[in-house]
Design a protein around this nucleic acid. Sequence first.
DNA 1: CAAGTCGGTTCACTATTTGAACCAGTGTTT
DNA 2: AAACACTGGTTCAAATAGTGAACCGACTTG
Lengths: 248, 248
Amino acid sequence: MSTVGKAVSLLELFTLHEPEIGLSDLARRAGLDKATARRLLMALAAHRLIEQEPRSRRYRLGAGLSRLARIRDAHFPFVRLAAPVVRELSQETGETVHLSEFSAGALLTVHVELSAKANRVNVDVGQVLPLHGTASGIAFLAASRLEVASAYLEKPLQAFTAHTMTERDTLAKAIAFAAASGYSRSSQGYEEGVHSIGAAILGADGQPVGTLSIASPVSRVDDQLAASQGEAATRAARLISARLTGEA
Amino acid sequence: MSTVGKAVSLLELFTLHEPEIGLSDLARRAGLDKATARRLLMALAAHRLIEQEPRSRRYRLGAGLSRLARIRDAHFPFVRLAAPVVRELSQETGETVHLSEFSAGALLTVHVELSAKANRVNVDVGQVLPLHGTASGIAFLAASRLEVASAYLEKPLQAFTAHTMTERDTLAKAIAFAAASGYSRSSQGYEEGVHSIGAAILGADGQPVGTLSIASPVSRVDDQLAASQGEAATRAARLISARLTGEA
DNA sequence: CAAGTCGGTTCACTATTTGAACCAGTGTTT
DNA sequence: AAACACTGGTTCAAATAGTGAACCGACTTG
């Protein structure tokens, strides 16, 4: 692996649950020598991508990342172009709609429009969704190249609720349904009581770049409503895809 | 420079005004060979820190940055701890108050609480402030180690308005005032019609990590009000510093 | 108090990075 | 339509930058 790749893989060891890590730990997990890890960390720290807590001497992600992310967010049209469509879809359906962007093997929630109803699903921006177990994820897999989806299904699949689809066959059927209909459906696969309809958003190269999802309390949805939500989600996702590729 | 440093300096070429850059351009500005620049970009792209627009083949910052930034923002307590204090200061003074974090030689605006008044100063999150010419910057320099401040003052200082302090002596006096009083004052140094009072926020090691600033229309401020704003800003900045270091 | 951490440093060895020269493609200018 | 000046991308011998075992001193733990 390139030196740069090693340095970035150090950054990727930090998670929401473990935002500060010591040198030895970092080196061990990245499979690097301590001296190497430290040199890479120093190089990253010089550009503020890494910071070191002076007291504990542990390392954490740096402010430079926030700065770079802001530059990207300000220009990459995904959220900017998609947000109005997401808002309209939320108003049209009366439900919470959230937008996710694919990154590093999972979907990152980047925008949310909450339902106006008192009994609604709440989703946080920044939440990371697995590709199985959420409607968004299944829609994404269905739109991905076969090899990508297959590779994902090889790995063991974590169950988040009693309803999570963890068996390959079940999941394959859900993916086939999504590929055929344009939208995916998942009931309580990730969180109890939440019903979701997902649809993939495609980039200029035809590959999926993210998804949108309509999330409702499960008590409010029957098959007929799910179908109409599915059509609305598919339409909205296609509109965003078209705008992304400059076709509308 | 280390290979990692070169790779990161490629990332830093992207700005709000120029978020997509071609290969040759990138290599030229970074002072790298085209082949080198491309190899680094590919390494960064493998981790989604860089993306390539398939049509134009130009490069842009990747979604991985947003993801990493979110992990950092979720844990690094700066904005989270400071925001309530900033809000209170805004309500107390009735003016716009903004919070900045130091990064890569400048202050990055990370949080804003707008004044409730009709005639108010508007500041955007994401805006980058120079260390001279803004009250925040002067407060930051005053709290920095002497060598850091001196090094900054060596470089030529850009004038943003007719009122920007660009002479070393004038600036040194403003810094001395801030060091003595705890707050800095700047009238129209960065934008016409805007008066600012700044105060530095210190990290656990006693070094400044950022600033807060009260921004008012210049017509509304006299010396007496400036002094009372200065006291309020100093108090708020100290409170945030204390909370950052776990002392309150 | 000995054994096992930790963060950090050194330096001979070596593998990764480098860049001039080279494509092929696309507009401009003549 | 030919010559030109760009662009993004590739190759490979030469050289520079990266590597890691062994070493610190400082803590913590049994």
